[in-house]
Nucleic acid binder design. Structure first.
Lengths: 227, 227
DNA sequence: AACTTACTTTACTGCCAGTAATATAATTAA
DNA sequence: TTAATTATATTACTGGCAGTAAAGTAAGTT
């Protein structure tokens, strides 16, 4: 019996491993297809083809096309998170000595997600406009919510701490985080629809740099209040 | 013969009038449907129904669903334009005496478009993300391009003038206009996906106000250079 | 070997943008 | 007044895609 149980559990483990691999291969395929054709123009059949399976198999693991893309977003959120945490550590340890470095750190943490996965990042935005955040695998929805919110919270804490430390002027941190996020999303969106791939990145960078400088400028004059 | 010609021309005029009315009724119907269900969820059949005609008739006047929504955008662009022109007049006449009023004027000119036609405004953004600016009636495409660009140009001229008059600090006006536009679009988008209709407008306003203040703050300190 | 479970596929439905072919009403020409 | 032309509208379709039901297959279990 003992032997049998062992056998069972070994087989189960293999199965689970295979399942994970299958899910991963679907995600990889989806990433490729989305990246090459964009979310809206990509079809589930194409993704299935790329993953060397058929469409219904995808639906075994993902509730919908939206669920699929949102599952891709998780690593992106994680990336921002880890970058923000580094900035926070620097802030708490005193390595960050002025408002400029703090604001720049936050900007870059968010922006980096776009640099590593532009297409996925773009889709995050699409989702905000459509009313499609429903109909997701609850797990994904939950983690997405939690982590997204987590990043924002972390960001707010850092700004609040920055204010305490008098690195930046007192502002409403809730609104402030929104403004930073809005700027990044807005600039990327704007430049995406203008540029032709090549100059694109440079333009975005320049515009975003200006945005960053303005925010720093506005937040770091120690004399006056913004509010 | 003279009499006949007159008759003809009168009839032709009536026809044209009727045609315009039909087009207008389609646009009105589309505006209603889009506003109530959003662009993506609205179907051409629904719009046809609302206009009390059938779908193919719409395609007689509009090349595609995209063409239809873009036709709706024109008034919105015109609105921003006329508001910007007022600000420009004030700037040239000397009625605007500081950077704050200039920046605020530009912000408000753009933002007003959202206030009067939120759904259409939102769709403008959608278009920037999708790759759908193709396949339009060339006339619409042209005017849209021209006027959109026109507004941006106007805006740039005003900022440049503001710099000349030393109302604001010297910055790259191309990037600056992008930053302003990005902020407005970004904030609206962000708040749209958070709020539940009621508090929505107030939140947006507050966040946008902060954005405005920050830009003003950064641009109006006369001592230092931003760039 | 019969049975259960997990997984995959074939073959569909339903929805929707857009179109071809056709019908109807109004204008013009005879 | 009637035949021909034009403008306008409709019915009935196509094609593409997300998502699903039902049927098949392979592996593990008894």
């Amino acid at each position: 019996m003992d032997k049998q149980d062992k056998h069972k559990s070994i087989c189960r483990k293999r199965k689970e491993r295979e399942k994970k691999q299958r899910i991963q291969s679907i995600l990889d395929a989806a990433k490729k297809v989305f990246a090459s054709k964009g979310y809206l123009k990509s079809t589930m059949d194409e993704i299935a083809m790329a993953a060397e399976i058929t469409k219904p198999t995808i639906y075994l693991y993902f509730k919908s096309k939206d669920d699929l893309i949102l599952s891709l977003m998780q690593p992106l959120i994680d990336d921002s998170r880890s970058r923000l945490e580094i900035v926070e550590k620097e802030l708490l340890s005193g390595a960050i000595k002025n408002g400029r470095d703090l604001v720049t750190g936050i900007f870059q943490a968010f922006y980096h997600g776009y640099e590593i996965l532009p297409e996925t990042f773009r889709v995050v935005q699409l989702f905000q406009q459509k009313d499609l955040i429903c109909e997701l695998r609850p797990e994904i929805r939950a983690t997405l919510d939690e982590n997204g919110r987590g990043n924002i919270d972390l960001c707010r804490r850092m700004l609040a701490r920055g204010i305490e430390m008098e690195l930046i002027k007192p502002v409403n941190v809730y609104e402030m985080v929104d403004v930073i996020w809005a700027l990044i999303v807005g600039v990327i969106q704007l430049e995406d629809c203008k540029g032709d791939e090549q100059k694109d990145h440079r333009l975005k960078k320049k515009t975003l740099d200006l945005a960053q400088r303005l925010i720093v400028e506005a937040l770091t004059r120690n004399a006056e209040q913004v509010i």
